[in-house]
Design a protein around this nucleic acid. Structure first.
Lengths: 239, 239
DNA sequence: AGACCCCTCACTATTTCTGGGGAGGTGAAA
DNA sequence: TTTCACCTCCCCAGAAATAGTGAGGGGTCT
């Protein structure tokens, strides 16, 4: 087990990190401290932008992006609906695309065992912190039994720094919707059309339109569907 | 400082909790273990529903609900846009409503010092874990310097259980979309209109429409916006 | 007291989406 | 081998959303 001093040092290093390069250095330290093959922090934006920081090979990182694996990767898909950190074995690898993805990953040096921790920040920010290794199932179970808590803390501190470095994320209060706008977005997300929403809110359809347009404007959305998608992605409404 | 055994015991208790009553018991243990006046877990839904579990007096809890303090409380408002755990002193107490709220809270036994940890789960779930006490600033700074990490872990485990107990959050992976449908939903969620999506996917707009209708049918959605909302909500697409 | 945001309502013309149809080809699983 | 889900294409009429304006009353914060 990683002793407290080691964990302490890693968290301190994370706290003191002053740039993305520092994070990149720390991720290697984490890998070495836990004696695993790979440690990876993977930021996924609600806009679909992503930022990875990890010990995977450059070739694999590029391939991941080039093949748009973000939309296939069961780790992303699985963790997105979970709070609990998850062992890769418990994810859904049944689809053909997922199996091909897995095979491809193995060929690029990704180990067979994985443990991923979902992390969420304000405005629908989402990230994953993953420990990856190549070993038998029993060893792996032992590993995350022993280090699960450490990894949660590391994931938390890592994301904290990553958010800090992310430009244009601090004063993002602009993305707040007024109560009426939230109502409108919520009902639209529930499948009602404008006439029904206006009726439900007991306002004229003209008024409703003003809300929708206003919300669209605030969210920087191109149309109603986009606005609803963003509102959900940003956690402004619940579906 | 709380020794490891104590933290260990609390986390174990949280892991093994089998009902909301258990959580209620554990929150008192946490308060005693850290020797503070209050410990509170506060779930806030984007719909405005809330669920509190803490050592505050019943009178204060009722007053909080009755006065709809959720919309006033600077702790909620401040933490909602932050990832970092936050000392109450660093929040914005400048508005009149906030100062009145604070005075009212003090009168109901809430201590002057607070340290709140924002926690987020899937589907825009949001909760706070708060440590509250009555003491001088220096003592408080020392407290969360010493116990910040413990509290993060406790908050994480607490929320994990709370999500588990929440009905209607069961794994609902039943509805799967075909790759093309996922593409279509994704691009629609990104704000493209049908012509643009069809163009991006290099298919005719008619074909695209078949995908959208098919996805709509599979998701039991009433229209495109609804389908996109559900696809996001079910984690079928990443926005 | 002025600035600013929120809520409410109105018009017109244009573009886009929806809900019914029908039809052929491919590939994987049973 | 058949079945079944998937991908691709087509028509049309009616319903819905969008763009570009406008205006007035209410509240809150500085």
């Amino acid at each position: 087990m990683v002793d407290l001093d080691k964990l302490d040092r890693i968290l301190k290093r994370l706290e003191e990190a002053s740039g993305l390069e520092d994070l990149f250095r720390v991720i290697y330290e984490i890998r070495d401290a836990f004696a695993i093959d790979h440690a990876v922090y993977h930021w996924v934006d609600s806009k679909g932008e992503q930022y990875g920081c990890g010990t995977y090979s450059v070739a694999w990182k590029e391939r991941y992006l080039a093949r748009n694996y973000l939309r296939v990767d069961p780790v992303i898909i699985g963790c997105y609906t979970r709070f609990h950190p998850v062992d890769w074995k418990r994810l859904d690898w049944s689809s053909k695309a997922a199996r091909e993805f897995l095979a491809d990953a193995h060929e690029h040096g990704v180990g067979n065992q994985g443990y991923s921790i979902p992390i969420r920040g304000p405005n629908g920010q989402f990230a994953l912190f993953t420990a990856n290794h190549n070993c038998p199932d029993e060893d792996w179970a032992e590993f995350f039994e022993a280090h699960g808590r450490d990894l949660i803390l590391i994931a938390h501190y890592f994301n904290r720094k990553a958010l800090e470095f992310e430009p244009g994320r601090a004063p993002e209060q602009s993305r707040q919707l007024s109560p009426r706008e939230v109502d409108a977005m919520t009902l639209l997300a529930m499948g009602y059309n404008r006439a029904q929403v206006a009726d439900a809110l007991a306002i004229s359809e003209h008024t409703l339109r003003v809300y929708i347009e206003s919300a669209r404007f605030k969210l920087g959305a191109l149309n109603t569907t986009h606005a609803v998608a963003r509102a959900i992605g940003c956690g402004l409404i619940v579906v």
